[in-house]
């Protein structure tokens, strides 16, 4: 077996349920902890952003139209499939970026799986907790219900490779949003492995789209896209975030960024029902009461 050629995986972008190279045809080298070449990742372009947003947009109504119970099951299924591929995820996490011990990588993978399960459980509970029946001065029922904003663009921070991605993605899609994710620029490979898991986990095509490439190329067209309803800029540095926020303001796109507590990725402070709420819009309904 020693002279066997390795069959290496091509890490392609995940757009509309399909694994695709960039429209631009570009790629960029991804280095491991020792500076060695791990793989070439796709270097996405603004047209890939456009295509991903179009895919997310067309998937959104169908995903939001699923029952909350069903969305919870789908998220739980993601955790199940990840669990069966724990070793693969751990190995990818261990060699990505600055690298870490196998124990630390296994711990991060386990935390990521647990986070999916945690948010899956919220699927049919958050609207009860965050919404409610309001007392009003009149013969009406007055109900507030959180509804998904629509398409959310997520800029994932560079490291750690897996846990921030899951921590920011799960609360976005659990309520019925669809997402366009700009994966970590430095550690994009594990994001694509997650995409393979999503493709096998009953997540409908277009609900999650994952792009890889250079942030300073991709954030601007994503932030400026009129069809993006909310932006998570956790992975942007101050300058890029300010520029993206300016672009977003022109189309009244809500901008969100993780707090210091939420950036303690391994802690419970990184997960919260209020992270679901921030990507929801509250709809209030008045209904006449019978006499």
């Amino acid at each position: 077996m020693s002279d066997r050629l390795a069959v290496n995986k091509t890490y392609k972008q995940f757009i509309g349920g399909a694994f695709e190279r960039s429209e631009s045809g570009r790629s960029y080298p991804v280095a491991g902890a020792g500076g060695e070449l791990l793989a070439n990742a796709i270097q996405g372009s603004r047209k890939d952003v456009r295509d991903a947003v179009a895919a997310a947009r067309s998937a959104q109504a169908g995903w939001a139209g699923r029952t909350a119970y069903n969305r919870g099951q789908v998220l739980y299924r993601v955790a199940e499939v990840m669990e069966s591929r724990r070793d693969e995820f751990s190995a990818e996490v261990a060699r990505a970026g600055d690298g870490c011990s196998h124990e630390a990588a296994a711990q991060e993978t386990a935390s990521a799986i647990d986070r999916w399960v945690w948010y899956a459980g919220w699927a049919d509970k958050f609207s009860t907790v965050l919404g409610g029946a309001n007392p009003v001065a009149g013969p009406y029922f007055n109900l507030s219900v959180p509804e998904p904003v629509g398409v959310v663009g997520i800029v994932v921070p560079d490291e750690p490779p897996l846990l921030p991605l899951v921590s920011r993605l799960a609360p976005v899609i659990v309520s019925g949003n669809t997402a366009v994710v700009l994966a970590s620029q430095r550690c994009p490979l594990v994001a694509i492995t997650l995409a393979e898991t999503l493709a096998l986990s009953d997540v409908p095509s277009g609900v999650v789209n994952i792009l890889t490439g250079h942030r300073n190329e991709l954030v601007s067209p994503l932030a400026g896209h009129v069809a993006v309803d909310s932006l998570d800029l956790t992975g942007c540095d101050a300058e890029l975030a300010a520029d993206a926020a300016r672009q977003a303001a022109a189309t009244i796109t809500r901008v969100v960024s993780a707090s210091a507590a939420e950036r303690q990725w391994a802690d419970e402070s990184a997960q919260s029902p209020y992270l679901i709420d921030v990507f929801c819009e509250t709809k209030t309904v008045w209904h006449p009461k019978g006499r």
Binding site: V49, V53, H225, V226, A227
Partner: peptide, 9 residues
């Protein structure tokens, strides 16, 4: 204006 547009508009 350089921005990708939204059909609903």
């Amino acid at each position: 204006d350089g921005r990708y547009q939204r059909r609903e508009d």
